[in-house]
């Protein structure tokens, strides 16, 4: 009987993949939330101020033009070489956040720009302060215009988060690679892993379609 370094794919491997999926979801929730908050703030500044638009342009351009994988490896290597004891999850979240925020900022800016100035003026004419107008008129109208673009961004973030496996964070992709080295069943493992990515993204996309329909209820025929 020859000795095999591999074992049959079993429930332990399956659990391992699920844990990876859980970390992928965690990354999406944390980085997605931070990127959205940061993106709306930066998008607002870029919408409202010419100076802010010019000052933030280089950062946005760099983040949107350099591949995420390059950013991840670059930053973790630089910190590593500089002798910092870096937390892999923290680094992954930070880079994903900045990367997605650069896109979110442009989505948000487009949303703010899409709101008719005359509608905003009408709100001010009723005695609303600039802040009240922003909260009750500008934000809701901008949000429903760019909601589909924002959902696409979040789904892209789930898939892009696979790249943080390159710096050693064991999310779904890394968990799959590990499982393959132990079972030598790449087809089965990656089929499962693909299924899990789908199981994360598809409900989000269905939920978003419902939300979108509800936000545009007034436009329905």
């Amino acid at each position: 009987m020859s000795f095999s370094p591999y074992h049959e794919f079993n429930w332990t491997d399956c659990w391992f993949l699920l844990q990876g999926a859980g970390r992928t979801i965690l990354l999406m929730l944390v980085a997605g939330t931070l990127a959205t908050v940061l993106g709306v703030a930066v998008g607002w500044l870029r919408f409202a101020s010419r100076a802010a638009r010019i000052l933030t342009a280089p950062a946005i351009d760099v983040l949107r033009s350099v591949p995420l994988l390059v950013l991840l490896i670059l930053v973790s290597s630089v910190f590593g070489i500089a002798g910092f004891d870096i937390d892999v999850f923290g680094t992954a979240v930070a880079i994903l956040t900045l990367y997605a925020a650069a896109f979110a900022a442009e989505v948000a800016r487009a949303g703010f720009a899409s709101v008719d100035r005359r509608t905003r003026r009408a709100a001010r004419s009723l005695g609303m302060t600039a802040g009240q107008e922003a909260r009750h008129v500008l934000l809701p109208l901008a949000a429903r215009t760019v909601f589909p673009a924002w959902v696409s961004l979040m789904l892209a973030l789930v898939k892009d988060s696979a790249l943080v496996s390159a710096i050693g964070y064991v999310e779904l992709l890394k968990a799959s690679q590990v499982a393959v080295t132990q079972t030598n069943q790449p087809f089965l493992v990656f089929a499962l892993s693909g299924l899990l990515y789908f199981a994360i993204c598809y409900p989000c996309s269905v939920l978003s379609r419902n939300l979108e329909a509800r936000m545009k209820h007034d436009l329905a025929a």
């Binding site: 509608t119 009408a122 004419s125 009723l126 005695g127 008129v137 007034d218």
Partner: peptide, 20 residues
Amino acid sequence: INRLRQKLGIVFQQYNTFPH
């Protein structure tokens, strides 16, 4: 000005109702 505007209602040519 926000308090003063409460004394002055204005209606515009293009209605400018809040669509949402």
